[in-house]
Design a protein around this nucleic acid. Structure first.
Lengths: 193, 193
DNA sequence: CGTCTATTTGAATGTACTCAAAAGCGGTGG
DNA sequence: CCACCGCTTTTGAGTACATTCAAATAGACG
């Protein structure tokens, strides 16, 4: 278990001693997820935070009119969950589905609270994680509000080439907040220019 | 200084002893800001995190075409800064301007790091703060992508009545990502329905 | 090979923007 | 205290961006 990605991930920000590693390991459960399998569905409650050891997943919402909106993609070395559901015990707004056969580590809400108690390094790690997540979301919002769809598509491709390989056009469209037909048109215009 | 809002704000999540309160106080600087005064301008570097003791501020971005986008409003009891600038020492993308005469507490980046060292309660507090900020941004993104402008306007008014009182229509429009002309039209339609 | 879904293409429509002008409103100075 | 100035808000016409619906084509997978 010592060669798990999650240690490298955490050690970007904190340095764990052997005891702390033990605490962490004993709080984690590895789970294999098959392509198209859901680890969370809208309406459920979710007490798990997921770390992607391998593979990739997608989080999306379906609104009352049936429109699907992709909130985030998570590839290897990323964290994912419905955070509002996880933290505030609200019903999940999101579906989380594997895009391919994947392995995730589950971290239970109560066990995470215990980890915070046992070592404030975990508190520090997640402070930095949420800090970065907040910044990323804010930049995304700014981007959405101030750039054209064409620009946003180009930036997405440039920023997340790994994701682009794994997902369909339709899913990228739903991340950008446009219809797949319109994205198709934009791609055509980019090629022709 | 003991009757500052900031203590109540922090004690929503952590309980500070007298020593910790001392640490905090000694890291803070009070600053009076006049209406229309900027505490940050695009392109500057920003080493301060601000807590609004009284009054209200607005953070906005102006893009290359001159289009203005409001990222957030901060009223009494809110935290505000250009977080990417503050945390990663990038040039500020945001202007932050007082909407009325206000009082803010400044927390310096280096002093905050020291606070984290001195007591992990501060680490915990900001972990929770960023966690909530992240959730809020994600819900906002979801909202933007899956709801009509009319719905988003209604929700804004319902969720932030205090802000609505203090800001112009134009500023709300730039927060929602539409033109003031279009928001005017939407309001008319709401009234007529 | 056949089925299912993704992607492309096109026509018609709706949503939101630009530009321009008029009306409303708040603050300032005489 | 009122008149004027500047900015916000409203209104309208014309335009651009993005959607819906439908149909054809292309790809993926059992």
């Amino acid at each position: 278990m010592n060669d798990y990605q999650i240690f490298k991930n955490m050690q970007k920000h904190i340095l764990l001693d052997e005891t702390e590693k033990e605490y962490l390991i004993s709080s984690l459960k590895i789970r294999a997820v098959l392509k198209k399998e859901f680890i969370l569905k809208q309406g459920q409650t979710c007490k798990k935070l997921y770390f992607v050891e391998s593979g990739s997943l997608r989080a999306f919402h379906i609104n009352s009119e049936g429109k699907e909106s992709t909130i985030m993609f998570a590839v290897q070395d990323w964290w994912i969950t419905d955070m509002n559901c996880f933290v505030n015990q609200k019903p999940a707004m999101l579906f989380i589905e594997a895009l391919e056969d994947s392995k995730v580590l589950e971290l239970d809400f109560d066990l995470l609270e215990t980890l915070y108690q046992k070592s404030s390094k975990f508190e520090r790690f997640f402070r930095i994680l949420f800090q970065n997540a907040y910044i990323r979301e804010q930049l995304r919002a700014l981007n959405n509000i101030s750039c054209s769809t064409e620009e946003r598509y180009k930036q997405f491709v440039q920023k997340y080439p790994v994701i682009v390989e794994k997902v369909t056009q339709k899913q990228i469209a739903s991340y950008l907040g446009v219809t797949p037909e319109f994205l198709s048109l934009i791609k055509k215009e980019i090629v022709e220019s």
